[in-house]
Design a protein around this nucleic acid. Structure first.
Lengths: 211, 211
DNA sequence: AGGTAACCACACCGGTCGGTATACTCGCGA
DNA sequence: TCGCGAGTATACCGACCGGTGTGGTTACCT
């Protein structure tokens, strides 16, 4: 065991040095990403990361400077991977708002099948990093804002009266599906969310656009 | 700082002693509940709990036996409070499935306004307690199952073709609203979820029941 | 040839973790 | 009066935390 303290209050961030991703650093980040996601950020010590990456702690600190930084890089990378996954699905879909909304839930479905066995990494990190100044929180917030904006754009194209509100509802189905699958064990959560989203779009669509 | 380890593998649970809630134990549980929720379970040490409850660690261990047990009791109590809050709202609503569904989101709204500034305690605990054997996880799972069943009952009364699926969608809006409010900062998340839920019920309702 | 970046091994730091042990006091009910 | 449950205070346990410092070895770039 061992675990505690109010989380380093690194106030007034000292501007980020750019990070050189040497081979060892690459290994460290991979290992840390896996461990942080599956076991939780706070329960994984640097010693363990070092051991798994076959690297000394010294090397980790030479490359990343602090655990906080390593955590932030883990979140950033995961966020980027998720965005790429989602936008890939969306762009391959038909260019209709309805099809594209559906595509977001398909993306979620495949994502959850592969690398999301422990819920949303951003939401988990948000739960674990209780210090409001931890820069990892900003990464999570940004991802959620991004998804919301994506939905807002699509919602606007449906002709909905209040695109923002529709977008928020679609985002809720999205996040809720992750919880349903992860905690409640609903295997086809993404499919259900997709179907509900479609019904919602229909209900909110401008009447003239109904087809 | 300090935080780590794969989380005590207390396998084959040694049957729970019933807990005597002495005045000190009451204080301990209150303090622990507050700290665990606001700072996270893993970042709060027993030393801090003892200090805040104006009690020695000895007393905590005499009453609760272990941190794990204290965590479980915290989750149970919070779960019970939440269920009471929600059922209170539901029972005070008109006895129509539509009104009762709406009432669940109203309950969420007032709940989030008062004592849910850091998201859903069950979801957070699920994120923090990565050991699949930690009994705290079961408490979270049970709450989500309960909510799902509650929605299933209401959905059945709407005459929906697939009550389970409608119920899951309603639960997703529910959980999603918590994330939206907490991470994305959507102030009227509960209201939006309520409105979306209502539209969804309308869409899924048996055509003959439309009113 | 010299410099430097990237790594290794290893020892060490103060501090905290969850949990235990010993010994003592107080108030209550039989 | 006696015992006991609930509490106090304090010291301690081994383990682990995040992080640093020293010194040495490659390998590549100029």
């Amino acid at each position: 065991m061992a675990v505690a303290k109010p989380q380093s209050t690194r106030r007034s961030r000292p501007q980020e040095r750019p990070l050189t991703l040497t081979p060892a650093a690459r290994r460290i980040l991979d290992v840390a990403g896996d461990l942080f996601y599956t076991r939780g950020i706070n329960t994984v010590g640097m010693e363990l990361v070092a051991e798994r990456a076959e690297v000394t702690k010294k090397t980790i600190y030479d490359r990343f400077g602090s655990k906080q930084r390593l955590v932030v890089e883990y979140l950033r990378e995961r966020d980027a991977r998720w965005r790429a996954h989602l936008t890939g699905h969306v762009e391959r879909a038909d260019d209709s708002p309805r099809a594209r909304v559906a595509a977001t839930y398909d993306a979620l479905d495949t994502w959850m099948g592969q690398e999301n066995q422990r819920g949303c990494a951003m939401v988990n990190a948000y739960a674990e990093l209780s210090d409001p100044d931890h820069p990892g929180r900003a990464v999570a917030e940004e991802q959620k804002r991004w998804l919301r904006d994506l939905y807002t754009g699509l919602a606007a194209r449906t002709g909905a009266e209040d695109p923002r509100e529709l977008a928020d509802a679609l985002a809720m189905l999205h996040e809720g599906a992750v919880v349903a699958r992860n905690v409640t064990g609903v295997a086809d959560a993404a499919r259900i969310a997709r179907s509900a989203a479609d019904a919602l779009v229909t209900a909110r669509m401008a009447p003239t656009d109904q087809a």
